[in-house]
Design a protein around this nucleic acid. Structure first.
Length: 214
DNA sequence: TATGCGATATTCT
DNA sequence: GAATATCGCATAG
Protein backbone atom coordinates (compact mmCIF):
# COMPACT_ATOMS: atom_id res chain seq x y z
CA UNK A 1 0.00 0.00 0.00
CA UNK A 2 1.64 3.21 -1.11
CA UNK A 3 -0.39 5.51 1.11
CA UNK A 4 -3.16 5.28 3.66
CA UNK A 5 -6.47 6.53 2.34
CA UNK A 6 -8.32 6.65 5.64
CA UNK A 7 -8.53 4.98 9.02
CA UNK A 8 -11.78 3.44 10.26
CA UNK A 9 -12.09 6.10 12.93
CA UNK A 10 -11.80 8.82 10.28
CA UNK A 11 -14.18 7.19 7.89
CA UNK A 12 -17.57 8.88 7.88
CA UNK A 13 -20.47 6.48 8.24
CA UNK A 14 -21.90 7.62 4.92
CA UNK A 15 -18.95 6.17 3.01
CA UNK A 16 -19.79 2.67 4.25
CA UNK A 17 -21.82 0.43 2.01
CA UNK A 18 -25.52 0.63 2.79
CA UNK A 19 -26.50 -2.73 4.21
CA UNK A 20 -29.71 -4.38 5.37
CA UNK A 21 -29.52 -7.16 7.94
CA UNK A 22 -30.88 -10.51 6.82
CA UNK A 23 -33.90 -11.83 8.67
CA UNK A 24 -33.75 -15.47 9.71
CA UNK A 25 -36.97 -16.22 7.82
CA UNK A 26 -35.17 -15.29 4.59
CA UNK A 27 -32.57 -18.04 5.05
CA UNK A 28 -33.33 -21.33 3.29
CA UNK A 29 -33.64 -24.17 5.79
CA UNK A 30 -31.80 -26.76 3.71
CA UNK A 31 -28.00 -26.65 3.89
CA UNK A 32 -27.13 -26.75 0.18
CA UNK A 33 -29.84 -24.21 -0.61
CA UNK A 34 -28.45 -21.93 2.09
CA UNK A 35 -24.91 -22.33 0.76
CA UNK A 36 -26.05 -21.21 -2.67
CA UNK A 37 -28.23 -18.46 -1.25
CA UNK A 38 -25.32 -16.93 0.68
CA UNK A 39 -23.30 -16.20 -2.48
CA UNK A 40 -23.44 -12.43 -3.01
CA UNK A 41 -24.66 -11.73 0.55
CA UNK A 42 -22.42 -9.79 2.94
CA UNK A 43 -20.65 -10.80 6.14
CA UNK A 44 -20.21 -7.83 8.44
CA UNK A 45 -17.78 -7.54 11.35
CA UNK A 46 -18.18 -4.76 13.90
CA UNK A 47 -14.95 -4.51 15.80
CA UNK A 48 -13.01 -1.99 17.88
CA UNK A 49 -11.04 -1.29 14.68
CA UNK A 50 -14.24 -0.30 12.92
CA UNK A 51 -16.46 -2.10 10.47
CA UNK A 52 -15.11 -4.57 7.95
CA UNK A 53 -17.31 -6.43 5.51
CA UNK A 54 -17.17 -8.48 2.37
CA UNK A 55 -19.35 -10.10 -0.26
CA UNK A 56 -19.51 -13.85 0.18
CA UNK A 57 -18.16 -15.36 -3.04
CA UNK A 58 -17.48 -18.98 -2.05
CA UNK A 59 -19.23 -21.44 0.32
CA UNK A 60 -19.41 -25.15 1.06
CA UNK A 61 -22.42 -27.08 2.37
CA UNK A 62 -21.99 -29.74 5.07
CA UNK A 63 -25.53 -31.18 5.18
CA UNK A 64 -27.04 -33.61 7.72
CA UNK A 65 -25.55 -37.09 7.45
CA UNK A 66 -22.45 -35.88 5.61
CA UNK A 67 -19.42 -37.90 6.76
CA UNK A 68 -17.23 -34.83 6.17
CA UNK A 69 -19.38 -32.73 8.48
CA UNK A 70 -18.38 -32.10 12.06
CA UNK A 71 -21.73 -33.28 13.42
CA UNK A 72 -21.44 -36.71 11.78
CA UNK A 73 -20.30 -38.38 15.01
CA UNK A 74 -22.63 -36.45 17.26
CA UNK A 75 -22.32 -33.43 19.47
CA UNK A 76 -19.04 -32.60 21.19
CA UNK A 77 -17.84 -29.52 22.96
CA UNK A 78 -16.30 -28.15 19.79
CA UNK A 79 -19.27 -28.57 17.44
CA UNK A 80 -21.94 -27.56 19.91
CA UNK A 81 -22.86 -24.35 18.04
CA UNK A 82 -23.46 -26.33 14.86
CA UNK A 83 -26.72 -27.55 16.40
CA UNK A 84 -28.14 -24.05 16.82
CA UNK A 85 -31.05 -22.80 14.73
CA UNK A 86 -30.03 -21.67 11.24
CA UNK A 87 -28.22 -18.36 10.94
CA UNK A 88 -25.78 -18.74 13.85
CA UNK A 89 -21.99 -18.74 13.66
CA UNK A 90 -20.02 -21.94 14.19
CA UNK A 91 -16.33 -21.08 14.53
CA UNK A 92 -13.57 -23.59 15.21
CA UNK A 93 -9.80 -23.81 15.02
CA UNK A 94 -7.87 -26.23 12.77
CA UNK A 95 -4.33 -27.09 11.71
CA UNK A 96 -2.90 -25.13 14.61
CA UNK A 97 -3.26 -21.93 12.65
CA UNK A 98 -6.64 -21.20 11.13
CA UNK A 99 -10.15 -20.40 12.25
CA UNK A 100 -13.10 -21.47 10.10
CA UNK A 101 -16.37 -19.57 10.06
CA UNK A 102 -19.62 -21.38 9.30
CA UNK A 103 -23.29 -20.44 9.15
CA UNK A 104 -25.52 -23.01 10.81
CA UNK A 105 -28.35 -24.51 8.78
CA UNK A 106 -31.40 -26.77 9.12
CA UNK A 107 -33.65 -26.87 12.19
CA UNK A 108 -32.33 -26.47 15.73
CA UNK A 109 -30.75 -29.69 16.97
CA UNK A 110 -29.92 -31.14 13.55
CA UNK A 111 -26.25 -30.23 13.29
CA UNK A 112 -25.32 -28.92 9.82
CA UNK A 113 -23.78 -25.81 8.34
CA UNK A 114 -22.18 -23.84 5.55
CA UNK A 115 -18.47 -23.04 5.55
CA UNK A 116 -17.69 -19.51 4.39
CA UNK A 117 -14.61 -19.92 2.18
CA UNK A 118 -14.01 -16.51 0.62
CA UNK A 119 -15.08 -12.86 0.65
CA UNK A 120 -14.67 -10.03 -1.80
CA UNK A 121 -13.69 -7.19 0.58
CA UNK A 122 -16.18 -4.32 0.74
CA UNK A 123 -15.65 -2.02 3.75
CA UNK A 124 -12.69 -1.72 6.10
CA UNK A 125 -10.18 -2.84 3.51
CA UNK A 126 -7.36 -0.96 5.20
CA UNK A 127 -8.03 -2.77 8.50
CA UNK A 128 -8.07 -6.11 6.71
CA UNK A 129 -4.71 -5.29 5.16
CA UNK A 130 -3.29 -4.57 8.61
CA UNK A 131 -4.70 -7.80 10.04
CA UNK A 132 -3.36 -9.89 7.18
CA UNK A 133 -0.13 -8.07 6.49
CA UNK A 134 -0.69 -8.02 2.75
CA UNK A 135 -2.11 -5.43 0.37
CA UNK A 136 -3.55 -7.37 -2.55
CA UNK A 137 -7.29 -6.93 -2.07
CA UNK A 138 -8.42 -10.12 -3.76
CA UNK A 139 -6.14 -12.19 -1.49
CA UNK A 140 -7.31 -10.69 1.81
CA UNK A 141 -10.12 -13.17 2.42
CA UNK A 142 -9.42 -15.75 -0.28
CA UNK A 143 -9.70 -19.03 1.61
CA UNK A 144 -11.47 -19.81 4.89
CA UNK A 145 -8.48 -19.27 7.18
CA UNK A 146 -7.65 -15.97 5.53
CA UNK A 147 -11.30 -14.91 5.70
CA UNK A 148 -11.35 -15.39 9.47
CA UNK A 149 -8.03 -13.60 9.89
CA UNK A 150 -9.09 -10.64 7.74
CA UNK A 151 -12.33 -10.28 9.72
CA UNK A 152 -10.76 -10.89 13.16
CA UNK A 153 -12.98 -13.90 13.66
CA UNK A 154 -11.96 -16.33 16.39
CA UNK A 155 -13.56 -18.67 18.93
CA UNK A 156 -15.20 -15.73 20.68
CA UNK A 157 -17.49 -15.48 17.66
CA UNK A 158 -18.66 -19.08 18.10
CA UNK A 159 -22.43 -19.21 18.61
CA UNK A 160 -23.20 -15.61 17.61
CA UNK A 161 -26.64 -15.03 16.08
CA UNK A 162 -25.84 -13.68 12.61
CA UNK A 163 -29.39 -12.41 12.19
CA UNK A 164 -29.16 -10.02 15.15
CA UNK A 165 -27.36 -6.73 15.66
CA UNK A 166 -23.92 -7.44 17.09
CA UNK A 167 -20.26 -8.05 16.33
CA UNK A 168 -20.90 -10.35 13.40
CA UNK A 169 -23.95 -10.40 11.16
CA UNK A 170 -25.25 -11.13 7.68
CA UNK A 171 -26.55 -8.53 5.25
CA UNK A 172 -28.48 -8.63 2.00
CA UNK A 173 -26.64 -8.41 -1.32
CA UNK A 174 -25.55 -4.86 -2.17
CA UNK A 175 -25.73 -5.73 -5.87
CA UNK A 176 -26.85 -8.68 -7.96
CA UNK A 177 -24.51 -11.67 -7.79
CA UNK A 178 -22.79 -12.93 -10.93
CA UNK A 179 -23.28 -16.45 -12.27
CA UNK A 180 -23.12 -19.06 -9.50
CA UNK A 181 -21.26 -22.28 -10.21
CA UNK A 182 -20.78 -25.43 -8.13
CA UNK A 183 -18.03 -27.98 -7.69
CA UNK A 184 -16.64 -30.60 -5.35
CA UNK A 185 -15.48 -29.41 -1.94
CA UNK A 186 -11.90 -28.56 -1.04
CA UNK A 187 -9.65 -30.02 1.66
CA UNK A 188 -11.74 -32.99 2.78
CA UNK A 189 -11.04 -36.72 2.73
CA UNK A 190 -14.57 -38.10 2.97
CA UNK A 191 -17.58 -37.66 0.69
CA UNK A 192 -15.29 -36.28 -1.99
CA UNK A 193 -17.24 -36.12 -5.23
CA UNK A 194 -20.23 -34.37 -3.69
CA UNK A 195 -20.78 -31.06 -5.52
CA UNK A 196 -21.53 -29.01 -2.47
CA UNK A 197 -19.21 -26.06 -3.08
CA UNK A 198 -20.71 -22.86 -4.53
CA UNK A 199 -18.90 -19.82 -5.90
CA UNK A 200 -19.33 -16.73 -8.03
CA UNK A 201 -17.81 -17.69 -11.35
CA UNK A 202 -14.77 -15.69 -12.41
CA UNK A 203 -14.48 -13.67 -9.19
CA UNK A 204 -10.75 -13.22 -8.38
CA UNK A 205 -11.43 -13.50 -4.63
CA UNK A 206 -12.50 -17.17 -4.99
CA UNK A 207 -9.99 -19.71 -3.61
CA UNK A 208 -8.82 -23.06 -4.93
CA UNK A 209 -7.05 -24.19 -8.10
CA UNK A 210 -7.98 -22.55 -11.38
CA UNK A 211 -10.19 -25.41 -12.53
CA UNK A 212 -12.37 -24.90 -9.44
CA UNK A 213 -12.76 -21.16 -10.06
CA UNK A 214 -13.83 -21.04 -13.70
C1' DT B 1 0.99 -22.66 -12.50
C1' DA B 2 1.14 -26.81 -10.01
C1' DT B 3 2.54 -29.69 -6.50
C1' DG B 4 4.70 -30.71 -2.04
C1' DC B 5 5.91 -29.94 2.55
C1' DG B 6 6.30 -28.32 7.44
C1' DA B 7 4.28 -25.62 11.12
C1' DT B 8 0.96 -25.42 14.38
C1' DA B 9 -2.73 -26.50 18.53
C1' DT B 10 -6.92 -28.25 19.50
C1' DT B 11 -10.03 -32.01 19.65
C1' DC B 12 -11.26 -36.53 19.74
C1' DT B 13 -10.02 -41.62 19.93
C1' DG C 1 -1.34 -40.68 19.74
C1' DA C 2 -3.78 -39.47 15.37
C1' DA C 3 -6.26 -36.51 12.56
C1' DT C 4 -7.30 -32.11 10.82
C1' DA C 5 -13.34 -28.21 6.33
C1' DT C 6 -5.34 -24.50 5.98
C1' DC C 7 -1.56 -21.39 4.89
C1' DG C 8 2.63 -19.84 3.06
C1' DC C 9 6.83 -20.87 1.26
C1' DA C 10 9.83 -23.75 -1.67
C1' DT C 11 10.90 -25.92 -5.77
C1' DA C 12 10.18 -27.73 -10.40
C1' DG C 13 8.39 -27.40 -14.96
Amino acid sequence: MSHVISTPADRPADTLTRLRRLHRAELPLATAALARYLIGKVLVREHADGRSSGRIVETEAYPPGDAAGHAFRGATRRNRALYLERGHAYVYFVYGSSYMCNVTSEAAGVGAGVLLRALEPLDGIDVMMLRRGISRVCDLARGPGRLAAAMAIDRRCDGIDLCAAGELWLAAAPRAAGPIARSVRIGITREIGRSWRFYERGNPAVSGPRRLRA
